[in-house]
Design a protein around this nucleic acid. Structure first.
Lengths: 212, 212
DNA sequence: TAGATTGTTAATCGATTAACAATC
DNA sequence: TAGATTGTTAATCGATTAACAATC
């Protein structure tokens, strides 16, 4: 695999999609695939697909195409999926619980290790075998345990405070679902899921169908 | 406002963020803002901000800047937020309920009008005053009511079936949270929120911090 | 071997940034 | 008016697409 090459964000955002499709193909027992066939499945051009893979060194074989299983594995390696990520969830309302279920049942390699909330009604309940703890205990927990990812499922008003605590507790990344523009030190990777932005974009495209 | 100009997706995705920030500024009573100040707040360059706004015709005034309130309103108009969108949710587990709460309490202009599920334990319960109906009734509901947006919060395996029913029922847009690559006719706008892709991208950036 | 398909270079396209005249 | 800041054109940068030689 090539090294020392800066990969553009556009490429990174396409990799999970490739991987998802390759997983399905592998599940169907398909062993090889050409960039042209992948183009049909993904909607990306064959040319772009080859360019993307060549960022990391040649995964294919001329005249043959790509081996589905090995390409799947390679992309997993690039994405850093060859290890386990420990995650904590802050905010255990419907959204926090939904994310917990999702991670537990769909995402091997991403493990919920603790959950926190301020709501006394939620503290103490168990979600997929994880007991919801008092948010007051987050700081202590992060001191005593190495956590890779903090997931913010709180209200807008608490989000920045939670982010600060997570950063101080040396998490490597924050997955933010709160509708807030939080700020963190550059050493922490921040991935926002802004539902509002997504819904607004949807409204835009609905309003502008057909018209010029 | 200019018309007949194709606006790039990149611009559209920035508009909700501008709007969010302008809303906050308006809330603080700030009346005017320059592209330079907006640049500080958004992280986009002042040049890009002026280019973005000029896609729609000049919103500003030389030597003065932009009027916060009027810019906020204009962007809302562009995004199509000057009307109400009726939405139905299919799949009323934690995620569906979380989205319902979110839309109800945070998103004026986007109204949940009905919710559906196949689970007998959920059918009949009320969520923010909306009763969960049997999924069997979706088709009938869509025939009798005009729905703008269908929100898919089901499992992966049901997602395509739901999308087909929504498309047949003439929804204008689909907001998909199921971890599936669904396909719909071009006449329906599809906005995916692929949590898996987002999490994988986060893993990538965590794995590649520091290193070359 | 002949056919297929990659890896890679070159061309194109589009988006971002820089610069500055227009003008409030 | 002088200063500030937009609107807009031109320059740059980066990403996508096209083309084709390399090679399995």
């Amino acid at each position: 695999m090539k090294d020392n090459v800066r990969i553009s964000n556009a490429v990174i955002r396409r990799l999970p999609r490739y991987r998802r499709i390759l997983e399905e193909l592998a599940g169907k027992g398909i062993e090889r695939i050409s960039s042209k066939e992948l183009s049909n499945l993904t909607g990306y051009t064959a040319s772009q697909i080859r360019q993307d893979f060549n960022n990391f060194g040649g995964f294919g074989q001329q005249g043959y195409g790509y081996n589905v299983q090995s390409l799947f594995t390679q992309i997993g390696l690039i994405l850093g999926l060859d290890r386990e990520y420990c995650m904590v969830i802050i905010g255990c309302g419907n959204l926090g619980q939904a994310i917990a279920n999702y991670a537990t049942y769909y995402k091997r390699g991403f493990k919920i290790v603790a959950m926190f909330d301020v709501n006394p009604k939620l503290i103490g309940i168990r979600i997929n075998d994880i007991e919801v703890q008092d948010y007051e205990l987050l700081e202590k927990y992060l001191k005593e345990n190495e956590v890779d990812i903090g997931i913010i499922c709180t209200t807008k008003s608490s989000a920045q405070d939670v982010a600060d605590k997570l950063a101080e507790g040396k998490v490597k990344g924050i997955w933010n679902f709160a509708p807030a523009d939080i700020e963190v030190d550059d050493s922490v990777v921040l991935e926002n899921v802004h539902l509002s932005d997504s819904l607004n974009a949807l409204a835009y495209y609905i309003s502008h169908r057909d018209q010029p």
